[in-house]
Amino acid sequence: MAGLKHFLLRVLTTLLLLAVPVLGVWTFVKAEEWGLWFPPIVSSYGAGIDNLFYVILWMVTVTFVGTELLLVWFVFRYSKRDPTRAVYTHGNHTLELVWTAIPALLMIFVAFSQMEAWSDVKLNFPEEGPYTVEKPLMEVYASQFDWRVRYPDAQGNFQGADVIEVPYDITVPADTKVVFRLKSRDVLHSFFVPVFRLKQDAVPGMEIPVWFEATQPGDYDLICAELCGWGHYKMAGRIHVLPKDEFDTWLAAKRAALYATE
């Protein structure tokens, strides 16, 4: 009776621990089907970021499944009632070296493989093209609890009576390297566009240049990703990516509408 109880306990423990890698991997496999996976990529650098994620995902999955299965096997195998004593060992120097060196090499590989993508997004701003850090397309203002975009007037000034200010809707051209300045009026906010794989905090007192190149016309969510107060959840925006020529028409129409009288 006691033996049966012990066996059941062993099996239960083993199954519980086994469920971790099995269900863990299964949910990741099914995640896409359940709509719990990355949204589509709509920026030029999005694929690079996702690929790095997948590189690490493979590494992590192999380690995860390997270590968890070892744990499961050890727990099942060595929880058997056994009157003999355990293996008497205090460790193995070579093994320690091996399992320090392998992660070290992997981590150095990970670190170096990330640097280029990071520089692409955050450091290497376009130097040519219609929009540069000195001459950005727009300024995006975050404030409690609104996103506002400001397009310069026809002379390129961001101050003055003829600038265009739009709440919520941020319209940008497709297939163009867009640079904008990110500012905050009050507290910290964060400019997060999931489909662009782009996130940058807006800090009061700082003007942070940000760039992206949208590859697909469409409407996408802009979400505030830094706690900005009680209305944080409602601080939404929308990115409208228009084909290049449509964008020019749109901007011209917007400038003209400034002087409409209806």
Binding site: V20, G24, F38, G48, I49, L52, F53, I56, M59, V60, T63, F64, T67, E68, L71, M107, V110, A111, Q114, A117, W118, V121, K122, P194, R197, L198, K199
Partner: peptide
């Protein structure tokens, strides 16, 4: 701890952390 530790690698990697 294996789960919590391994997911940290994504967070440490700056480009992945952007998302």
């Amino acid at each position: 701890f294996i789960i919590g530790g391994l997911s940290g690698i994504w967070m440490a990697s700056t480009p992945v952390d952007i998302y």
